[in-house]
């Protein structure tokens, strides 16, 4: 599983779910902070007409964190003021680079993706009900 895919699953996860799954790892090697969870801004860029010149829409609050775990640097950037989630994601990123823990981290990423898929399926279900079915506008007596 590519690093970007793992990091995406971590960033999009619900904080409780991620922390619970990371807790299931048991003992992990000690780590030191390269950067404690730090709040900051990411200026969101968009494209005019959804495709043309980029423009700056406004800033989004984000948290970043970096750890050194057994010589592996783990990084995480997540939206919002989420120090615990960010630390968990940075640790996961570092552990993914350690052959001993990599399979576990990939499993966690798959769990998170499945969790996301379930939530999304529910959302789609509700949204689809609001889709206009134009055929129902034609009453029996108006049908040709």
């Amino acid at each position: 599983m590519e690093r970007q895919r793992i990091m995406r699953a971590l960033a999009l996860s619900r904080e409780n779910t991620l922390i619970e799954l990371m807790g299931s790892l048991g003992d992990i090697p000690p780590f030191e902070y390269l950067r404690r969870p730090q709040k900051g801004l990411i200026m969101v860029k968009a494209r005019a007409d959804a495709k043309n010149q980029a423009f700056n829409l406004g800033e989004a609050l984000a948290t970043r964190c970096s750890v050194n775990l057994n010589g592996k640097a783990g990084h995480a950037y997540v939206l919002g003021d989420e120090p615990e989630k960010c630390l968990a994601a940075a640790l996961a990123d570092a552990l993914a680079q350690d052959e001993r823990f990599r399979p576990e981290i990939e499993r966690i990423a798959l769990c998170l993706e499945a969790d996301m898929a379930r939530a999304r399926a529910l959302e789609v279900q509700k949204t689809q009900k609001t889709k206009v079915d134009f055929f129902t506008l034609v009453r029996g007596e108006d049908a040709d």
Partner: peptide
């Protein structure tokens, strides 16, 4: 999504 293997760092690890 150009895949990058998970054990590649961008450079030397800086100190805190």
């Amino acid at each position: 999504t150009k895949p990058i293997p998970a054990n590649q760092n961008a450079g030397p690890i800086p100190g805190p």
